[in-house]
Simulated scan of single mutants.
Amino acid sequence: MLEYHKLNDNELTDLVRKSDELAFAEIYQRYWTIMYMHALKMLKNEEDARDVIQELFTTLWSKCQSLTSSINLSGYLYTIVRNKVLDLIEQKKTRSIHLESLALYLEEHHNKTLEDLTEREMMQALDHEIGQLPGKMRVIFQMRVKEHKTYKEIAEALEISDKTVKKQVSNAIKLIKPKLSGFTGWPLLLYFLSR
């Protein structure tokens, strides 16, 4: 059986072009949090950032036939996110406030592709640290990070209280936080996870 998590982006792109839903799910899993963090940095609004990322993956699936195997997938996804953020800002007519911070952000990262940024390395480090967590805590934290579930959804799925879920996530963050302190994006990621 094909192990999608071991495939590189180009191999996954080839499979997605053939409408392989499992390859698409792997890309979604691999890039959701990274892209969400970029959208959140630009928009400063969690709900808007989630909407942008939902649109990102809807767009990716709808355009999968036109993807080429040589595409830089991370750069392609980042470009879609950036364009969707600009569209959203335009729609909300809050250009003057947001475009200033967005222009500054884009200026700082002008010549960098997503691969040059540390978010992917941070996510790999985070995956490693999650794997080191004790059993129940690891399951809860994975549901929060990988499945993007709310405290309530996790509590219902595991038949435990919201308070227990919140405490386990908080404890996991305390264990992981020192290990990620070398990455510039970790405070934003941990803020998102603790919400």
Rank of each mutant, 00 (worst) to 15 (best):
A39C: 09
L40P: 04
K41G: 11
K41S: 13
M42H: 05
L43F: 04
K44Y: 15
E46S: 14
E46P: 13
E47M: 14
E47G: 11
A49Q: 03
R50L: 11
R50K: 11
R50I: 11
R50H: 12
R50P: 10
V52W: 02
I53Y: 11
I53P: 07
Q54E: 10
E55L: 09
L56W: 03
L56S: 01
L56I: 01
T59A: 04
T59R: 10
L60Y: 06
L60G: 02
W61L: 01
W61H: 02
W61K: 01
S62V: 02
S62K: 02
C64L: 08
C64K: 08
C64P: 05
C64Q: 08
S66V: 11
S66I: 07
T68Q: 15
T68C: 14
S69R: 15
S69L: 14
S69A: 12
S70P: 13
I71Q: 12
I71P: 15
I71L: 15
I71T: 11
N72S: 15
N72P: 14
N72W: 14
N72R: 13
L73Q: 12
L73M: 12
S74C: 08
G75S: 12
G75Q: 10
G75C: 13
G75N: 11
Y76M: 09
Y76H: 10
Y76E: 07
Y76T: 05
Y76V: 07
L77T: 06
Y78I: 05
Y78T: 03
T79V: 15
T79L: 14
I80C: 06
V81W: 04
R82T: 06
N83L: 01
N83Y: 04
K84W: 05
K84L: 05
K84N: 07
K84S: 03
K84F: 05
V85P: 00
V85K: 01
V85R: 00
V85F: 01
V85S: 01
L86W: 00
D87V: 10
D87M: 09
D87W: 10
D87N: 10
D87L: 10
L88G: 09
I89G: 02
Q91Y: 12
Q91E: 13
Q91R: 11
K92P: 01
K92I: 00
K93I: 08
K93M: 08
T94R: 08
R95F: 15
R95N: 15
S96R: 13
S96D: 12
S96Y: 14
I97V: 15
I97T: 14
H98V: 03
L99W: 06
L99S: 06
S101K: 04
S101E: 03
S101F: 08
L102H: 05
L102N: 00
A103H: 09
